[in-house]
Simulated assay, not measured.
Amino acid sequence: MHNIDVDFFEKSSSSCDILIEGLPGVGQVGKLVAEHMIKELNAEKIAEVHSIFFPPQVLMDEEGVARLPKNEIYRYEGENISIMFLVGDFQSSSPEGHYLLADTYLDLAQKAGVKRVYTLGGYGVGHLVDNIRVLAAVSDGKLKDEVEAAGAVFTTGEPGGGIIGASGLLLGMGVKKGFEGICLMGETSGYLVDPISANQVLSVLSKLTGVSVDATKLKERADEMENFVERVKESEKANSEEELNYIG
Rank of each mutant, 00 (worst) to 15 (best):
Q28S: 12
F54A: 01
G64I: 04
R67E: 01
A43D: 04
V26R: 12
E44H: 15
G64K: 00
P55T: 07
I38S: 09
E48F: 06
A43V: 11
Q28L: 14
N42A: 14
Q57A: 10
V26C: 09
E63L: 11
Q57N: 09
E48M: 11
P56N: 05
Q28A: 13
L32K: 15
V29T: 08
V49G: 03
L68D: 00
Q28K: 14
V26K: 10
G30F: 04
L32W: 07
G30Y: 07
P56D: 02
K39L: 14
K39V: 13
A47E: 09
A34E: 05
R67H: 03
E44K: 15
I38N: 11
A34V: 15
Q57S: 12
H50N: 10
M60Y: 08
G27V: 05
E62P: 07
A34G: 12
P56R: 06
E40T: 06
K31V: 04
G30W: 08
D61Q: 09
V65L: 06
G27T: 05
A47C: 08
L68P: 00
N42H: 15
I52L: 00
H50K: 14
E63W: 08
G25H: 06
V49R: 05
G64N: 00
V33G: 02
A34Q: 10
V33T: 02
A34W: 08
N42D: 13
K45I: 15
E40D: 03
H50L: 10
V33D: 00
V65A: 07
A47N: 12
A43N: 12
N42L: 13
E40V: 03
Q57C: 13
V29D: 04
K45P: 13
S51Y: 01
H36C: 12
F53T: 04
L32T: 13
K31G: 07
V58I: 12
V58M: 07
V65G: 01
I52W: 00
I46W: 14
F53Y: 13
L32G: 14
A66G: 02
L59F: 02
I38A: 05
I46D: 12
F54P: 03
E44P: 10
A47T: 11
S51I: 08
S51A: 01
K39A: 12
K39Q: 13
E63M: 11
V33C: 01
M37V: 06
E62I: 14
E35N: 15
G30S: 11
D61V: 00
N42F: 14
E63H: 12
V33L: 01
E44L: 15
K39C: 11
K39T: 13
G30E: 10
A66T: 01
V65F: 03
A43M: 11
V65C: 02
K45F: 07
G25W: 04
V58G: 03
S51N: 03
L68T: 00
P56E: 02
K31D: 10
L68I: 04
V49W: 02
V33K: 07
L41W: 03
E62G: 09
S51M: 05
I46T: 13
E48A: 08
K31M: 10
D61N: 14
E35G: 11
G30I: 07
G30T: 11
I52D: 00
Q57K: 11
K31P: 08
V58H: 07
V29P: 02
V58R: 12
P55A: 05
E44D: 14
G25V: 02
F53N: 01
M60E: 02
K39G: 10
R67M: 03
H50V: 14
F53E: 00
P56T: 00
K45A: 13
K31C: 09
